[in-house]
Simulated scan of single mutants.
Amino acid sequence: MSASPGSAPFIQAEHVRRALLVAWEGSPTLRRLVDRDQLRSQPLDTLNAIVARDYLATVAGVRNPHRIWSWAVNRHGGGNAILGWIIACDTPVSPDRPERNPGGWFTRFATSERPWDLSRNLRQLFRVARACPAPAVPADNAAEGRGSQAEQKMPPTMEGRAAVGILDAYRDAWIRAGTQRLSRGRAEAAWKSWLDEATVTGLDDNRLQLRVKTRFARDQIFKDYGDICRVAAEAIGYAGVDFETGLSTR
């Protein structure tokens, strides 16, 4: 489990909620503490208090844990403190670090005077979510009359929870970026026209991969909205976004 000091905070305050929605998919700790509705609607101060209680109740072998948490908030921001703790708890072990030490890692993060780049850790959580099988949907929950509508939608190419969570966060960031360049109404119309049936297919290095139905759609997206696509990807922690075309084979 690693992260590197950077020249700027990984998640700026205005983007932290989107980052938390992305992290929620791969973080058992965060899913245990809050559900998606809470993560979308609760003030960040409330979410910070919930996660702080978990940190204080869980951490062992750390002196003055209340002070450590305060340092994390004061130096990196409340949202990054939340991200730091769930990354400390849930980043997968690696061959060079076979044992996880959440308390020690979080202490190093909290006491660092320089911002830490947490993007690598967030991508690792995403890969964990992608590898987890999606829960089966009970047959009696399938509403009648949806068959023809479902056939018109592109089937997901990742496990359902991860794909939907990443796409939701990307859409929110895309509409926000589009609103700044166009207007809210035009941004929403553009998303509906070109990206409403897109699917997340995965990650390639530090770039988000999306699939759209046709080459024409892909070309129009790059031609008219390439800058918005890039800004939206950066807003949720990626260097950019790439598009592929065609229906999924799943």
Score class of each variant (00 low, 15 high):
residue 3 A to V: 09
residue 5 P to W: 00
residue 14 E to A: 13
residue 20 L to F: 02
residue 20 L to R: 00
residue 26 G to I: 00
residue 26 G to R: 01
residue 30 L to P: 03
residue 33 L to T: 12
residue 42 Q to A: 15
residue 43 P to G: 11
residue 45 D to L: 14
residue 48 N to S: 14
residue 49 A to S: 10
residue 55 Y to A: 04
residue 57 A to V: 00
residue 63 R to P: 06
residue 63 R to S: 14
residue 63 R to V: 11
residue 71 W to A: 15
residue 72 A to L: 08
residue 76 H to L: 01
residue 77 G to N: 03
residue 79 G to D: 06
residue 81 A to H: 01
residue 83 L to P: 00
residue 84 G to L: 08
residue 90 D to N: 07
residue 90 D to P: 03
residue 91 T to P: 00
residue 92 P to W: 03
residue 94 S to N: 07
residue 115 P to D: 11
residue 115 P to T: 08
residue 117 D to P: 11
residue 122 L to D: 07
residue 122 L to C: 13
residue 127 R to F: 04
residue 129 A to V: 03
residue 129 A to Y: 02
residue 130 R to M: 06
residue 131 A to Q: 05
residue 131 A to F: 00
residue 133 P to R: 05
residue 134 A to C: 09
residue 141 N to R: 14
residue 143 A to Q: 12
residue 145 G to K: 11
residue 145 G to I: 10
residue 149 Q to Y: 03
residue 152 Q to D: 14
residue 155 P to C: 00
residue 160 G to S: 08
residue 160 G to C: 04
residue 162 A to N: 05
residue 175 I to F: 03
residue 176 R to V: 05
residue 176 R to C: 10
residue 180 Q to V: 13
residue 183 S to K: 08
residue 184 R to H: 05
residue 184 R to G: 10
residue 187 A to F: 00
residue 187 A to R: 02
residue 187 A to Q: 02
residue 189 A to T: 04
residue 192 K to L: 11
residue 195 L to M: 14
residue 195 L to R: 09
residue 196 D to M: 10
residue 197 E to W: 07
residue 200 V to L: 09
residue 201 T to A: 13
residue 206 N to D: 15
residue 207 R to S: 09
residue 207 R to I: 14
residue 210 L to K: 04
residue 216 F to C: 06
residue 219 D to I: 09
residue 219 D to E: 10
residue 220 Q to M: 14
residue 220 Q to T: 14
residue 224 D to N: 10
residue 224 D to C: 06
residue 227 D to Q: 10
residue 229 C to L: 15
residue 230 R to T: 15
residue 231 V to R: 07
residue 232 A to Q: 07
residue 233 A to K: 01
residue 236 I to R: 10
residue 237 G to A: 02
residue 241 V to F: 08
residue 246 G to A: 02
residue 247 L to F: 12
residue 250 R to P: 00
